[in-house]
Simulated scan of single mutants.
Amino acid sequence: MQFSTWIRQHLAALRALLVLTAITGIIYPLAVFAVAQVPGLHDKAEGSLITVDGKTVGSKLIGQSFTDKDGNALVQYFQSRPSAAGTNGYDPTATAASNLGPESIVDTLDADPTKVKLSLLSTVCARSKAIGDREGVDGARPFCTKDGVGAVLSVIGPRTAKGEVAHPIQVVSVNEACPTVPFISAYEGVKVECARPGADYSAGLIVPIFGDASVDTPVPTDAITSSGSGLDPHISPRYADIQVARIAKARNISENQVRDLVDANTSSRTLGFLGEPTVNVLRLNIDLDSRYPFRG
């Protein structure tokens, strides 16, 4: 290759580099910035931030918790959907789901409480019970014990060709650590035992027990499970509705006054047919503080 040809090729590459740098590194970012300044788009481009008395209190696109320093729900506020994003939830830099699926039904028990790992089932059961107790509704769910853990047994004994247990010789409530009294006393004539932390009961047939709770529980799904991003700022009108009585009592106002604010902060389905109606928790709580300040 002649030296002059080599120079021409490199000069062409340099010109291409400069042109693309100008387009993608200068012109395009400036164009996007200019569009973001258009009235009606500027607020969204800045993160849809919400300010109260000149102070930024959050974004209408990112959820946040309304709890005290110990993680207990503040009685005067509507509570958000659970979050698995980050250590304390709602962390936009660690957006994530729990990655637990429907087969996650057995807890990892340990003598050290900090090493206990709850299954998705027990997490759901515990949240439903806690919300039911807080809101004064029935938080019982199928496959949950009355104490709020997964109602799951390990049935140990010789197996049939189909993998069923022919004659149980030991039955353990795998999510109830000793000395807890199991949620049922016997299964197929065999006494049910509590689980010893650290013991392995995987050799048994894992059997979830449906129980006698109604499938139509007052505590909705969005109250006990996190969204895929962990940042959902909305709850369902159904979850908002079971919180109305508590809010009204805490703020010494009528339930109708609270429901009026819930309705004002409820958005209908996108384009009239996509998704479900939603309630923005942050904006609703701000309206509550503005119109009916908490005197507690």
Rank of each mutant, 00 (worst) to 15 (best):
T51A: 13
L205V: 01
K249R: 15
S4L: 12
L49I: 09
A126G: 06
A223N: 09
N99T: 06
L41D: 05
A85Y: 11
L120W: 01
V190Y: 03
P220N: 12
V192S: 07
L121C: 01
A223M: 09
R291A: 12
C125L: 02
E164Y: 05
S104M: 04
A195S: 14
P158Y: 07
Q64L: 05
R259C: 00
V106W: 09
F294T: 12
K146C: 02
I242Y: 03
A31K: 04
K191E: 15
T160Y: 08
D138S: 10
P237T: 03
S4V: 11
Q79N: 13
S154Q: 04
P179H: 13
L109F: 04
C194W: 13
L41F: 14
P82W: 10
S122Q: 02
V281P: 11
A177W: 10
A264S: 14
R15E: 01
R8Q: 11
A245Q: 07
T93I: 02
P220Q: 12
A177Y: 08
A111D: 15
Y90K: 02
T160I: 07
Q9R: 15
A126F: 01
Y239M: 14
V149F: 02
A12L: 15
G296I: 04
R251I: 05
I105E: 01
S83L: 07
L205W: 07
T67F: 03
T114F: 11
P182F: 14
G189V: 01
G139M: 07
L205H: 08
A31V: 08
A140F: 00
N99D: 12
S59T: 12
D232H: 06
T145D: 10
S185G: 10
K249Q: 14
V219A: 11
A195K: 10
L153S: 06
L271N: 14
P233L: 08
A45K: 14
S98F: 01
C144R: 08
V172K: 04
N175G: 02
R196V: 15
A199K: 14
G132E: 08
A203G: 12
A240Q: 09
D43R: 15
V116N: 03
K129M: 11
P113T: 01
V174S: 06
A264L: 12
K146A: 15
